[in-house]
Computed example of a mutant assay.
Amino acid sequence: MRNYLTRQAMKALKASVVMLTFFGLAGTAMADKKITFKTPSAFGTNLPITGSTSVYFADVLERVSGGNMKIKMFEPGELMPAFDIHQAVSDGQVQAGYTCGAYLGGSLKEAIPYCTMPFGPEPHVMLGWLYEGNGTKLWEKFYNDAGYNVKVWPLAIYANEGAGWFTKRIEKVEDWKGTKIRIGGFAGGTVTKLGAVPTLIPFGEIFPGLEKGVIDAAEMGLPANDLEAGLHKVAKFYHMPSWHQPYTIIEIVMNMDVWNGMSDAQQAQWEASVRQANVWSMTHSNAIQNAALKTLQEEKGVEIVKFDDEMLKAMRAAFNETMDELMATDPEVKMLMDDLTAFMEDYKAWENIGSIGRNSLWD
């Protein structure tokens, strides 16, 4: 699996393991039983960040545990469809799974923001809510209330993606009418109000969907993901900015019985490795995107199309309407949004006073 990691990633991995070992998390590894976590992934491990964070995490965990804990990753569809991973982990068919909450959005809408949502917080603020606010407590409550026998963590968390690949330009609100787009979650409800026809399909079906004309557009991932997936071969208009996905979380879920059967040391090793994967995914994702974007533009002939202020205002209004309707009928979504909004407002109050503004050194 380590072949998917860059040289810089391997350096970071070695440094992380040294640090975690220094603090004693690997000290009791010899006394613990060996566990191999059979782990299906909803995302190809070849995809930068979205997929490769699981590889990075697996290597950290194996080294920190002295080889007593190993992740055996399975590529999308190898064991089961991507949308079935949560249930398979809950049922004990597999020990763990690498997936995202948006794939439960059809039946569990409160899971959607644990993957992403339009006009949401930046990644570091979202991570703060998960670890320092009520984010993870609510996440576990929602899954438990829905009958999922799992424990959940954010594994990959990274910054804004592209707004999507289109076979035509979307420059006016009217251009959305009839556009068949691969997009899900609350963003799907938003573009519906603009006249689009959203559908949520797994990553592996995006390329053939665009190629065969089943869909006219698709949001997928970061520029580095999209370059690796070859989406420039089937769509030439890459739209920005990322109104729909200012942060992304890819989660790892574990069967609760498996978690409860682990020693205290193993649980600590697991959670420390998760935190390290959080840091790596945030830093590495930001570091590699501009190079990928330049390749797409200069070598692959991709045209960047930026939504103007009028379009973004229309999207925001449609999103607000979508959420007002949903929160009026779904108390769980309202509970989540009220709590997250309060956390964001508290953070923003400090940022407005203490920050000199994003990128001000380069303005």
Rank of each mutant, 00 (worst) to 15 (best):
T248C: 15
I249L: 11
I250G: 02
I250A: 05
E251L: 09
I252V: 08
I252T: 06
I252K: 04
I252F: 02
V253A: 15
V253T: 10
V253S: 13
V253F: 11
M254I: 12
M254V: 13
N255F: 03
M256H: 15
M256Y: 13
M256V: 15
D257I: 03
D257H: 08
D257P: 05
V258G: 08
V258F: 15
V258P: 09
W259R: 12
W259H: 08
W259E: 10
N260Y: 02
N260Q: 15
N260P: 05
N260R: 15
G261E: 08
G261W: 09
M262P: 11
M262L: 13
M262T: 09
M262D: 09
S263H: 14
S263N: 07
D264S: 11
D264N: 13
A265W: 13
A265H: 10
A265I: 05
A265F: 11
A265E: 13
Q266P: 06
Q266W: 10
Q266C: 05
A268W: 00
A268V: 02
Q269E: 11
Q269K: 07
Q269G: 04
Q269P: 00
W270Q: 04
W270D: 03
W270P: 03
W270L: 13
W270H: 08
E271A: 01
E271S: 12
A272Q: 07
A272I: 05
S273I: 04
S273G: 07
S273D: 03
V274I: 14
V274C: 02
V274G: 01
V274A: 01
R275W: 04
R275F: 07
R275G: 00
R275D: 06
Q276K: 10
A277F: 04
A277M: 07
A277R: 12
N278I: 05
N278D: 02
N278T: 02
N278V: 02
V279I: 09
V279F: 08
W280A: 02
W280M: 01
S281C: 03
S281N: 01
S281G: 02
S281W: 01
M282G: 04
M282I: 08
M282N: 09
M282S: 10
T283D: 14
T283Q: 14
T283S: 12
T283Y: 12
T283R: 14
T283V: 13
T283M: 14
H284D: 11
H284L: 00
H284N: 12
H284R: 06
S285Y: 01
S285I: 00
S285G: 14
